[in-house]
């Protein structure tokens, strides 16, 4: 559906573009450096040097693997919400809260009016893009998820908080576009949390993309939720591509797509990021082919279920490798059989 838009933006991608959701595991020396920085034992410059080195490692790795659309791996971020909350006036960072098992995050607290403080991600996007000729996605957390994953002690209700955040994130999207980003991912994993609030998410995304829709290709990542509760209404969001975790949930969304045709582009999660086991190529190939039974090849991108930051470096690389290899197999068959109807 949006291949024309991609071409108009100067992006000539193959069928079934391979990409990643955003985060990669931080190498051990960077993890240690982050601890040392928190203790005041190393300088900000030293930490950033290691973050740059790790970013370069992941850009080179993705190129070597043959991925089509790259991410910077978020070497400079801890948590996807906290990173922005640490920079947006109006937030303070709260204590640790459990997300699952033995995983915790610093849940932010909205304590005052939220405002855009100037570019928060542009410099890192520019650095990552300077390392490669392949497109690098701009990566942001969406306003609904920012609100839902924060405590709110300031705004009178959830919608007011979301719309204030949307106005701030709109400015960041504008800054990324002005810097040259042509693919921008705005993650909304909280979308399906309260299906009755889907209209708020859609309204907020309209604010975020207001006046910018033709200037970049927009992706929204969603994961580990009750997608069927918000499908097909989620298609009202003005983004071009939904990036969905599908392997962990046994590709069950495909059944919903059979009943109600999926109309946008989609990034299909074909490896589970919550297991140490690296899937074999045949398994991933089967998942891609299953998706193509209900989706047109022109709609489909291929990537992991979610960010890979919780895996070991070699596991993450292994999962990316099988994605690329499986996609190549399917792509070869599609090219051999000619254009789809």
């Amino acid at each position: 559906m949006s291949r024309g838009k991609l071409k108009a933006l100067g992006l000539d991608l193959p069928l079934l573009p391979t990409t990643a959701v955003g985060s990669y595991p931080k190498p051990p020396e960077l993890l240690e450096a982050r601890i040392q920085f928190q203790r005041g034992a190393i300088s900000r410059d030293r930490l950033e040097e290691l973050e740059r080195r790790a970013t370069e490692f992941w850009i080179r790795t993705q190129e070597e693997l043959g991925m089509d659309v790259l991410v910077d791996g978020e070497m400079y971020r801890g948590d996807m919400v906290a990173y922005f909350a640490e920079r947006l006036p109006g937030f303070e960072i709260g204590g640790l809260v459990r997300s699952y098992g033995n995983r915790y995050y610093h849940k932010p607290i909205i304590v005052g009016p939220v405002e855009w403080p100037g570019p928060m991600t542009v410099r890192w996007w520019q650095f990552a893009q300077s390392l490669t000729d392949r497109p690098v996605k701009g990566m942001l957390t969406g306003p609904y998820t920012m609100m839902d994953w924060s405590f709110n002690e300031y705004y009178p209700d959830r919608k007011s908080a979301v719309l204030a955040l949307a106005r701030a994130i709109h400015r960041e999207v504008e800054a990324l576009i002005e810097a040259g980003a042509r693919i921008i991912q705005i993650d909304e994993p909280a979308t399906s949390v309260r299906p009755d609030e889907l209209p708020i998410m859609v309204e907020a995304m309209e604010v975020v993309l207001d006046g910018l829709r033709d200037r970049a290709y927009f992706v929204t990542h969603m994961c580990y939720g009750n997608f069927e509760a918000v499908y097909p209404d989620m298609l009202k969001s003005p983004v071009d591509n939904f990036d969905l975790e599908m392997s962990n949930s046994g590709l069950d969304m495909l059944e919903h797509f059979r009943r109600h045709p999926y109309t946008k582009d989609i990034s299909v999660g074909v490896v589970d990021v919550h297991t140490h086991v690296v899937e074999d190529v045949d398994t991933v190939e089967r998942r891609i082919r299953a998706a193509l039974e209900v989706l047109r090849p022109e709609q489909v991108w291929v990537d992991p279920d979610c960010g890979l930051k919780t895996r070991q470096v070699d596991e993450a690389i292994g999962k990316l490798r099988v994605i690329v290899e499986a996609t190549r197999r399917v792509r070869r068959d599609l090219q051999a059989s000619g254009p789809s109807a």
Binding site: W149, G225, N248, S249, H274
Partner: peptide, 10 residues
């Protein structure tokens, strides 16, 4: 596998 616990981030 993992599933979101009601409307939480857990």
């Amino acid at each position: 596998g993992l599933l979101r616990y009601f409307d939480t981030n857990f």
